[in-house]
């Protein structure tokens, strides 16, 4: 599977990650989130750089998933949820009332904790996004998008002979890569991943991590993870959340070798969490 990815990425002349100052893709400013009366996030300020992987870590219930879900307004589906402060995508506030949520979610895609392929064929799963957004004019374009997306997700070689079979019949790791392919097919600018490997075995996890590293050349990625090793392996920047507060955010390397805050130190060395 790796061959197809490397072919693709080399062919597409990726944006080089080592460039000195990457641009800011998403800027969160004093974000507060409430579930009913209960406040889940307190004044979170966080910049997410373009073409980087930013990982959000912290103990369960610390608000990292809530923050992730407010980046594409997925929290809108929860009746009692309320967001204050501003989150700007390319300088535009996504909570502005003129923003079309549907359009926003096409630009900021999402991969969930549990693989959730639609009860459709593998092909239709990937073609879902391009179809509803009218990204293609004819069948051969659609075939092309489906193939490229599956290649980017490293799944093409495993499923190319059975595209008409149900996506739900794949293994857990393959389903998750199918979900990534599905997100990639819409050509989003940002991909949010909510613990994408927590339901997978180590081999499938390794594949997904490799994939995340490949994907960051084309996309900005924000990933929530419970695994410190995963954060260290895949991300350039790490943010530590605790009890609804953003405690510390820095270059991943610095976070894991020399964190400033005592709580971060305690969490990453396994003293609590």
């Amino acid at each position: 599977m790796n061959q197809s990815i490397s072919q693709d990425t080399t062919g597409a002349t990726p944006v080089t990650q080592s460039d000195a100052a990457p641009g800011i893709k998403i800027k969160a400013d004093k974000v507060k989130v409430f579930y009913g009366e209960k406040q889940a996030l307190f004044d979170v300020d966080l910049d997410i750089n373009e073409n980087e992987v930013t990982s959000l870590i912290g103990p369960s219930g610390c608000g990292k998933s809530t923050f992730l879900r407010s980046l594409n307004r997925m929290n809108d589906t929860i009746d009692i949820c309320r967001v204050e402060g501003s989150i700007a995508l390319d300088g535009e506030d996504i909570y502005d009332k003129n923003v079309d949520v549907v359009h926003l979610r096409a630009r900021v895609g999402m991969v969930f904790q549990k693989p959730n392929p639609f009860p459709k064929s593998i092909f239709d799963n990937v073609a879902y996004g391009p179809r509803i957004h009218g990204l293609v004019d004819n069948k051969s374009d659609l075939d092309q998008i489906v193939q490229t997306s599956l290649e980017k997700a490293g799944l093409w070689n495993e499923v190319k002979d059975r595209l008409d079979q149900p996506g739900t019949g794949l293994s857990g790791g393959q389903q998750q890569r199918l979900c990534i392919a599905r997100a990639v097919a819409v050509s989003p600018e940002v991909i949010l991943m909510d613990e994408p490997c927590s339901a997978l075995d180590p081999i499938a996890t390794a594949k997904i991590e490799e994939l995340i590293d490949e994907l960051r050349s084309n996309f900005t990625i924000v990933i929530v993870t419970h695994s410190m090793q995963q954060a260290a392996r895949v991300s350039q920047k790490t943010a530590f959340f605790h009890l609804g507060y953003l405690v510390e955010v820095d270059e991943t390397e610095k976070m894991f070798t020399n964190p400033t805050d005592e709580r971060t130190q305690g969490y990453i060395t396994g003293r609590f969490g």
């Binding site: 589906t77 926003l104 895609g109 991969v111 639609f118 996004g129 599905r182 997100a183 819409v186």
Partner: peptide, 24 residues
């Protein structure tokens, strides 16, 4: 999770209902 998967791809409510919920 199927609804959220569909919303996450930028589908509207009625698209989600027609193409994901009803078939399922």
């Amino acid at each position: 999770s199927l609804r959220e998967g569909s919303y996450g791809l930028g589908a509207t409510k009625s698209e989600t209902i027609r193409q994901v919920i009803l078939p399922a």
